[in-house]
Nucleic acid binder design. Sequence first.
DNA 1: TCGTAAGCGAGACGGTACGTCGAGTCTTGCT
DNA 2: AGCAAGACTCGACGTACCGTCTCGCTTACGA
Lengths: 207, 207, 207, 207
Amino acid sequence: MATPILSTTSRRSPGRPRDLARENEILKVTLGILSEVGFAGLTVDAVVAKAKVSKATIYRRWATKEELAIAAFDQLPLIEIEEHDDLEAEILAYVEQYRDFVQTTPLNSVLPALVSEATHNEVLSERLKEIVARRRESGIEMIRRAIARGELPGNTDAALAQELIIGPMLHRSFFSPENITKDDFRYFARIIIAGFKATADQSSTPA
Amino acid sequence: MATPILSTTSRRSPGRPRDLARENEILKVTLGILSEVGFAGLTVDAVVAKAKVSKATIYRRWATKEELAIAAFDQLPLIEIEEHDDLEAEILAYVEQYRDFVQTTPLNSVLPALVSEATHNEVLSERLKEIVARRRESGIEMIRRAIARGELPGNTDAALAQELIIGPMLHRSFFSPENITKDDFRYFARIIIAGFKATADQSSTPA
Amino acid sequence: MATPILSTTSRRSPGRPRDLARENEILKVTLGILSEVGFAGLTVDAVVAKAKVSKATIYRRWATKEELAIAAFDQLPLIEIEEHDDLEAEILAYVEQYRDFVQTTPLNSVLPALVSEATHNEVLSERLKEIVARRRESGIEMIRRAIARGELPGNTDAALAQELIIGPMLHRSFFSPENITKDDFRYFARIIIAGFKATADQSSTPA
Amino acid sequence: MATPILSTTSRRSPGRPRDLARENEILKVTLGILSEVGFAGLTVDAVVAKAKVSKATIYRRWATKEELAIAAFDQLPLIEIEEHDDLEAEILAYVEQYRDFVQTTPLNSVLPALVSEATHNEVLSERLKEIVARRRESGIEMIRRAIARGELPGNTDAALAQELIIGPMLHRSFFSPENITKDDFRYFARIIIAGFKATADQSSTPA
DNA sequence: TCGTAAGCGAGACGGTACGTCGAGTCTTGCT
DNA sequence: AGCAAGACTCGACGTACCGTCTCGCTTACGA
C-alpha cells in the first residue's frame, strides 16, 4: 500500500507565505500587554510597537482587537489534572492550578471582557464557546475517571458535575480572586462529592 | 412663628442645587443603551444625545464611564426570593428569576465588563464587591431560613452555600446564557442539598 | 435714523465658541510645513504635533487635507502693485514681487498641487477659482489704471491683458522658477505693451 | 593577439530579459487610471490589479510612483504644428490641439502634480525640465519658421516668443480649462504678433 | 541538456498617514 | 452653583498605500 508521491491537493497557495514567526511574536506580545494592563488597556498600536510589526500584518490575521485578544488568550496552556486516585485531592490540585492561572495570566481580564463583548457579537460568542468547551475537557475527564474508579456513582453526569465544581471557582475568581482558598474549596468539594454519593444512594435505596 | 434653627452643618451649599430629575433620566437612558448595545457599545455621547443632557452634568456626578455604568446597573432591582418553605423550590424560583434577569437586563454585558476592568482598577474593584455583596444577600438569607427550618444542618455556612448555588448559575449565564434550564438546576439543587445533609450526618455519626 | 439696540439676527450660537487662536495657529503651522516640505510632504499629524492641537479641531474646520492647504495658502498676502505711472515699471515691480513670492512662500508647491487635485474635485475647483480670481484683481487694476492714464488704448480688455502678463510668469515659476529674470520680463512687457498700442492704432488707422 | 570584437559593453546581461510587453501594458494602464482619477487617485496597487502585473515588475523599471507617472505621461504624443504660412492661424490650430489635449489626456492632473513634487525633488525637477523642453520644441520651431517667412522680425527670440504664447495657455488650462476659447487666443495672438512687429520697427526706426 | 541568473505573478511585510470616534475637560451664556 | 451646548486635547481605531521582500515558477543563454 503505497502513499502517493505528491498529493495534488497539498499545493501551496501562490505568493509569499505568511510568516508564522510574526504570528507567534504578535500573540506573545499581546499576552504580555494583556497581563500588564488588561483587556481595556490593550491597544493594537502598542502591539505594533512592541512586536515591531505592521498593523496590516495584524489585521491580515485577525479582524478586530477582540479576535486578537481571543487568539492570544487561546495560547494559554490548558489546566492539567494531576492524577491522585482521589477526587477531592484532584479537585484541590485543580483549584490550586486555577488560582495560579488567575494570578499569573490575564485570564481574569480577558475572559470577562470577551463574555461581555459576546453578548452583542455572535461570531465572538461562538469562538468563546469553543474555547471554553475545550478548557472544560480536562475537568470533565477528571470526573469521568472518578466515576470509573467508583468514587462517584455511575449515573453521574460528568459535564454537570464539572460545572458544579468550576462554577464556584469562576465566582471566586471574578469577585474575590485574591481569596481562592484551599479550605473553602475543600468544603465545596466534600459537599459536592457527598451530594453525588447521597443522590445515588437515594435512587437505589427504595426497596 | 420661629425661624428654623438653621444648623450650620446642614447649610445648603450655595448656588443652584442639582436636579435629581437629570440624574434619573441619565441612568434610565444609560440602562437603555446598555441593553441595546452592551457595555462596549455604550458611549457617553450617546447618553448625552438621548437624555438631552450636557456632558458636564454627567461628569459632575460620575467620574468615569465605568462609574456611570455601575450606577445604572445598580438601579436594577435585586432578585427577590419567593418563600416556599422548600429550599429546592426556592432555588428553582431563584434560578428562573435570574434567567429572566439575564435575558431582560444588560447584566450579562455590564457585569463581566466591570469584572474585567476591576482587574486593573482598585476603586472599581471595591465598588463592584459592594454591589455583588448586596446582590448576594437575599440568596444568603434564603439559605439561613432553610437552616432555621431544619432543611439544612445547623453548621452550614450560608455564604458558602449560596456561592455553591450561584456559581453554576454564573457559569451558565456567562457561557451559555440561552441554556439556563430548570432541569439542570434542579439536578444541581438536589446534589447540593443532599451534600449538605450528608456532610452534616457524617459529623454527627461518630457513635 | 437709529441703529437697532440689539439685532435679533446677531445672536451667538449656543455652546463654547470656536477658538480663533487655534485657527490661526493651525494655519501658521501648516504654512510653515508647506514651506519646508511642500504639499506632498504635508501631513495632518505633523500639523497636530507642531500646533499642539487635536485632529478633531482641524477636521472640525476643514474636511480634508486639501481644504486645510487651501486655507493656509489663502493666508498668504496678495501681491501689491507699486504705483509708478509707468506700466513697464509697474510690471517689472510686479514680477519682482512675484519672484520673491515664489521663493519665500510655498506657492509653487501648493498651487500646482491644488490645480492637479481640482481636476477631479469639483468643490476644490470652485474654491481654487475664487482664490485665483481674488489674486488676479490687483494686476487687473494695474492694467485699468494704465488704460486710464492713456498708456494703453481705451478698448483694452484688462482681464485678458493681465492674463497675457501673468501667463508667462506662471510658466516660468512652474518650469524654471530659479530663472525669473528682469531682462526676460522687460522683453515680455515691452512686446505686450507695444502690441496693445499697435492693435489700437490699427483699429483707428482705417482712413 | 586580437581580443574578440564583441565589445563587453554590448553583452546582454544574463538571465531572462525584461518583457517589453509588460512595460507597455503598465504604461497604458497607468495612463488610463490617471485619466480616470487623476494623479492623486493613482495607486500602484491599482496598476498592479488592472495590468495583471506584479509590483516588483513595476519597481524594477521605475523607482517611485512619480517616475511611473512621468513615464506614462511621456507616452502622450507631442503637439504637432499644422503648417499654414500664417502665424496667427498656426497659433490658433496650436491652441485647439492644446485644448483637445487638456480635455482628453490627464495632462492637467499629472503636469501640475509633477510641478508640485519637483519643488522638493531635484531628480524629478530635472526629468520634468527635459520633458517640458521637448514639448516646447515644436512651438519654438513654429516661431522660427514665422521668422524665416518674415512674419516676425529677424531679432525675435523664438524661445521667449513661444513662452509668451504658451504662458496664457497654461494659465487658462490650469485655472479655467473649460474656457480655452478661440476668440480669446486670437486676441492674444494678434497682440503678441503686433507687439513683435512694433518693437522691431522701433529698434529699426532710429535713422 | 543543463545550470545559472534574472524576470515574473502573487502577495506578505514594515512604515506611515489618513479621517473617525470616544473619553474626559473646559468655556460660553443662561437659569 | 447647575445646566445645555459644544469646542478642546489626547489617543486609539481600522483602512489604505508605498516601496521592499519572499515564494515558486518561467525564460533565455552559454557551458
